[in-house]
Design a protein around this nucleic acid. Structure first.
Lengths: 222, 222
DNA sequence: AAAGTGCAGTGACAATGTCACATAACCGAT
DNA sequence: ATCGGTTATGTGACATTGTCACTGCACTTT
């Protein structure tokens, strides 16, 4: 299931096609440790980042400490913001943080431009990523503007538990950051869920006990 | 300042470059009346839409009637959603409505694909648009999640009045839809502004009287 | 003039976010 | 095991924003 660096290189910069070999020259492989900040708001974009294996969280921070996760870039995906900024020469509007140790390919702008022109596969890849992120973002706007916090929290818990009755290792603060809410609000909602026997609460962990009930709530207004 | 259809065609599908002439064949010019719905949520994308002159509002609607404007596509811009969906073959996550009579070019998927491969200028154009929209969207998320409604309203009024002391023809409901808020909330805020002498309120119109004061509020937490 | 339609005003209440704390659990060093 | 520091959570009071159910007003049509 896991793709190797070579798989990705071969797919996006195939050596079979003429004139593409030199492209691989400029591509560098890096390994980034958890919690490292890949880019900050306002940074200029210099390289195209391609995640081979790992996870990058893209988030926006507020002045008062609140934050919201916009989306994640995972195995075999690329960071759209980077893509767009590279080409429109704008700076990053958000922040990217490594969530778990991540292996990535750093593609210099020149190589990126070249590949875009010469590889239809590469174009498809880049745009497919764009489309997904754009969809994610619109969904996020919708959730945040119209969605109830209990429904959104239930949805998040279901996503984190993989629909099953499991224990999730996460703090209330992290859940709040994910949803762009405040810790107190999440704590109260969890207490409500716990009161109904849907979850158990431990320090830094949530026990999903009644996935069916949570899922029913999560499905409201679909 | 206004670009003609030919200007745009020439820039994005230049006849000078070899083999591009046939591309123009499939491109069709259409004129769309105000309030027409260009695409709905869930529609599949078939064509690439390029606005020559006019304005398309892209919005999300909630079940209970609330709505929020995500961004607008204006003169010489293209609709990103369409771009991404075309390539990733997803369906529209939002709705597009013509705001004022709009002239647009309809580019079939095949022509779009072709042009993307053969014209660096076209690629730049497409990605530049993507980048802008992505930035707009992220900004929207930030505003909605962290921003105070009075600040956001002041900002909107300043944008609509062009920073000057002018009368704006708009209803409270329209302002609310723009910000993803509720009419009552906007009405109250406007009353507050009116109480301070910053604006005058008429039926379907707002008189901006103290742009400086509004602007100062609008600049909070930048 | 009467009726219809869309726009705006209002009070009561619900949901969510903010603030200022109090507790409690964990961790490492003694 | 105990102490002290750090991080996570609990809680009440309050502010802001959204919801609901109305009312009244202005303009248009008949």
């Amino acid at each position: 299931m896991t793709q190797t660096t070579d798989d990705i290189l071969e797919r996006l910069f195939p050596t079979a096609e003429s004139g593409l070999e030199p492209l691989r020259q400029g591509v560098e492989k890096v390994c980034l440790p958890a919690r490292q900040v890949v880019f900050r708001r306002g940074d200029p974009c210099r390289n195209y980042l391609l995640v081979v294996q790992g996870s990058v969280r893209v988030q926006v921070l507020a002045a008062n400490g609140r934050e919201i996760t916009l989306y994640r870039v995972r195995d075999g995906q690329s960071c759209v913001i980077t893509t767009s900024c590279l080409i429109s020469v704008e700076s990053y509007p958000a922040e990217g943080v490594i969530e778990e140790e991540t292996t990535a390919l750093v593609v210099p702008k020149a190589v990126f431009d070249q590949a875009l022109g010469s590889s239809a596969e590469f174009r498809r890849f880049v745009f497919a990523n764009q489309g997904q992120r754009l969809g994610d973002l619109i969904q996020r706007v919708e959730d945040v503007v119209f969605g109830r916090i209990d429904v959104r929290l239930a949805r998040l818990l279901m996503a984190l538990s993989g629909q099953g009755a499991q224990s999730i290792a996460i703090t209330h603060q992290q859940l709040a950051s994910e949803l762009g809410s405040a810790r107190e609000v999440i704590s109260r909602q969890l207490k409500q869920f716990a009161g109904r026997g849907w979850v158990g609460i431990g320090r830094g962990a949530i026990d999903v006990k009644e996935p069916v009930a949570l899922d029913e709530l999560a499905r409201q207004s679909d």
